[in-house]
Nucleic acid binder design. Structure first.
Lengths: 156, 156
DNA sequence: TTACGTGCAAACAATTTGCACAACA
DNA sequence: TGTTGTGCAAATTGTTTGCACGTAA
């Protein structure tokens, strides 16, 4: 039995997300629809730049993508992760989703794969035991993916 | 028996680091001495900016700190980690040190504490099993430290 | 003496902010 | 119609690069 890709979302996901916006008194605009469409349809995490491209450079301004992602993040509709370089990666998170996962990011082709588990939850308790509050963590794996590695081998 | 602070280094550490530079054909300069001094004496990870301040704004140029940290990182003398914002944090790593640790970073005061263990090593095998090469990972915890939390409580 | 390192200025990239205009509710 | 969202331009922040000069080996 194949494991469901956590980056795959049903067509209803967009409406679901729009509802969350409405529930919080936010307006539904063309750019927001377009960005959500790009984000949800993408099937894997993307950078602001990639989302902007997907929406179409004339679809909306780059700044609008930044502002929307900020808003979506506050509503819990997106999760943010990071490249080794520090660049942000955004991915859609269905409303109410609690479980989270981590990524394997190829340093060569920037491909993002999903590691569908998180062993770090336990460690967070350790951190809370030290007196910290609002604890969160950031865990990403980096490596050269099989394809890029093969390509490297051929070249040499 | 108290656990040694992995950010505390003996006075000989600077000479040790300078030797590594020499062994790799790098020159010993006043800025490099000063930066190593700041880095090793600091006792916890710091940003480029903080190291530059420690060296003294007129001690050397900010650019030189960037370039030295790059060089030191290539020699394995420093490890890099990241704030949630993506800003880099550097810390001295004694030559030959293999074991690595992770951090708890306070979102308010930016204090960095050490979590002297790493449970993620095992997961890296999982990533390698998927065909990835040169695998590394990034794991940081963020939270509000006890002091900052208390301060927050008082204010409200 | 000669390659390597540094300072300074300028380029760059990613992100944020200010402000006037546009458009959802 | 009033407020929220958007576009455009410009400011910020963190980092990198080019080039002439200085200096460790």
């Amino acid at each position: 039995m194949p494991v469901a890709n956590p980056h795959q979302h049903p067509p209803s996901a967009i409406e679901e997300a729009l509802d969350v916006l409405r529930q919080h008194g936010h307006r539904i605009t063309a750019p927001r629809r377009a960005i959500l469409h790009a984000l949800i349809g993408r099937g894997e995490p993307g950078t602001i730049e990639q989302l902007h491209q997907a929406v179409g450079t004339d679809g909306c301004d780059l700044v609008t993508v930044y502002r929307c992602m900020d808003a979506f993040e506050k509503l819990g509709l997106v999760r943010r992760s990071y490249y080794e370089s520090g660049t942000c990666l955004y991915e859609y998170q269905p409303p109410g989703a609690k479980e989270h996962h981590h990524h394997i990011i190829c340093r060569s082709c920037q491909r993002v794969e999903t590691l569908d588990l998180c062993v770090v939850e336990g460690l967070e308790k350790l951190v809370r035991d030290r007196g910290y509050h609002k604890v969160s963590h950031l865990l990403e794996f980096f490596g050269t993916c099989p394809d890029c590695f093969a390509a490297e081998q051929e070249r040499s």
